[in-house]
Write a protein that binds this DNA or RNA. Sequence first.
DNA 1: TTGATTTAAGGTTAATTTAGGTTAAAAACT
DNA 2: AGTTTTTAACCTAAATTAACCTTAAATCAA
Lengths: 226, 226
Amino acid sequence: MKTKILYAEDEPFLGKIVKESLESRSFEVIMITDGKDGLVAYGQHKPDICVLDVMLPNKDGFKLSTEIRQLNPTIPIIFLTAKTQTDDLAKGFQSGGNDYIRKPFSMEELIIRINNLLNLTQKKNINATNVITIGQYEVFLNKYELSHQDKIKKLSHREAELIKILSENRNTIVSRKDILMQIWGDDSYFNSRNLDVYMTKLREYFKDDPSLEIMTIKGVGYFFRV
Amino acid sequence: MKTKILYAEDEPFLGKIVKESLESRSFEVIMITDGKDGLVAYGQHKPDICVLDVMLPNKDGFKLSTEIRQLNPTIPIIFLTAKTQTDDLAKGFQSGGNDYIRKPFSMEELIIRINNLLNLTQKKNINATNVITIGQYEVFLNKYELSHQDKIKKLSHREAELIKILSENRNTIVSRKDILMQIWGDDSYFNSRNLDVYMTKLREYFKDDPSLEIMTIKGVGYFFRV
DNA sequence: TTGATTTAAGGTTAATTTAGGTTAAAAACT
DNA sequence: AGTTTTTAACCTAAATTAACCTTAAATCAA
C-alpha cells in the first residue's frame, strides 16, 4: 500500500511541483492550501506522515500540528519554513514535530527525510503473527513451527525460509535459481544439492495431506500445488 | 546523568565554541579533531549521541559513522556539513545517520536536533523508567533486577545488557555478531563461547513463561519471541 | 517413428563439518 | 570471600558435502 502524505502548502506553484514529484516516487499525496482544512483532511485520509508549511492562511503549521497530534500523538510531522530564525524551529519541535526543513529545499532532501522518519517510527511494528495455512497444515513463521493435527514440528531456519518462498508462490512456478538466490545468495553446485536435500525434507513433512504436492519442473523450478 | 556527546570537528575555532556552548547546556562533550580517533573515543566514552563533521582528516564522518554503527546500531548520529549537495545527505542517511545539519548552523538548531533525536531513539528503546516488560517478567534495567511473580533475581551487567538487546529486537532476528559487537566490542571465538554461556543463563531465567522463547537461527543470530 | 540409450537434472540417504549449547572450573573483579 | 566473567572441555543439532540413485528429456538406432 502506498504511503499517504498530508501536504500543506499555500504557494501554488511550489505545491504542484512537490506534489507531482512525491507522486512520481509513488507516495499518495493529499494537498491542502489552507490551514483550517488540515484537520478535516487528516480525519478523512488518515495519512502516514504530514509535511506542513509553517506559513499557512488561517491556521499556521505549528497550530495545525498540535491539533493533529491530539488525534495521533505519534504521527511523524515535517515542517517547512522559509524563515531562518531558530525561534521557529524550537516552536516546531515543541509542538511535537519530528523534523524541520528550511526552504528552499531539494526534493531529494524531502524524500530522504520522509523515508527516514517513517523508518524510525514504523519499523518494528510490522511483524504480524505470520501464520500461513497450507492444506491441513499451519506454519507459524514467527515460532518456526509446523503444525498438523495437534502435532507440532520444529522447523529450522532454512526449512522455514523455503516453506515461506514456496507458499508465497503456491500454484505458480518458482524458479530454482530464485530460491537459491533468496536463501543462499548464490546458485552454485553445492547449494543446488543443498536445496535438493531440503526439498526431500519438506516433501516428507507435507506427505500426510494428499492435496499438497511439491512438483518438480525439471530445468525450471518447482510448483507447489495447494 | 549528563548526556554524552561525541563531537568530531576539525576546525578548531568553531569546535571550541560549539563544545563550550554544549557544555553550558550541561551536555558532556568529548571532542576529537581526527577521524581515526573516533572509534577509540567511542569505545572509551560510550556517548549517547554523535555529532560528526563530514569533512575530517584521515577518516570522514560517514566512514566513522558506519564503524560506530557496527558497534551500536541504534545510536543517533547527526552529520554537519558545509556542502549543500544532497548527494551528501543521501550518503549520510545510508550510512545510518539519523539527522543532518547544514553549516552554518545556529547553536539553537543543533541543540534542538540533539534533543529531538534523543527523544526519538530513547522513547522506542527504554521507557523512561527503565522498566521492560517481557511476558510475565519485568526487568528493572537501572536496578539490574528481573522480577517474576514477586520473586526477584539480581542480574549481572552482562546479563542485563543482553536482555536489553534481545528485548529491543523482540520478534525480529538480531545477528549474533551485532550482539557480540555491542556487548564485547569484538566477535572473537572466545566471546562467542561467552555469549553462549549467557544465553544458557537467560533461557534458564525466562523458562517459567512458556510464551517466551529465545530461538537460535543458526549461522545468523537469535530471535526472541515474546 | 518408436523403443533403447544416453545424459543432465534432480532425489535420497548418510557422513562430515560447523555453529552453538551445556556445564564446570579458572580467573578476575569488588 | 563472594560474585561475575572468561576459558575450557565436551556435547548436540543444523547445515553442508558427498556418494550413489532415479527420472525425464533428448538423442540415437532400427
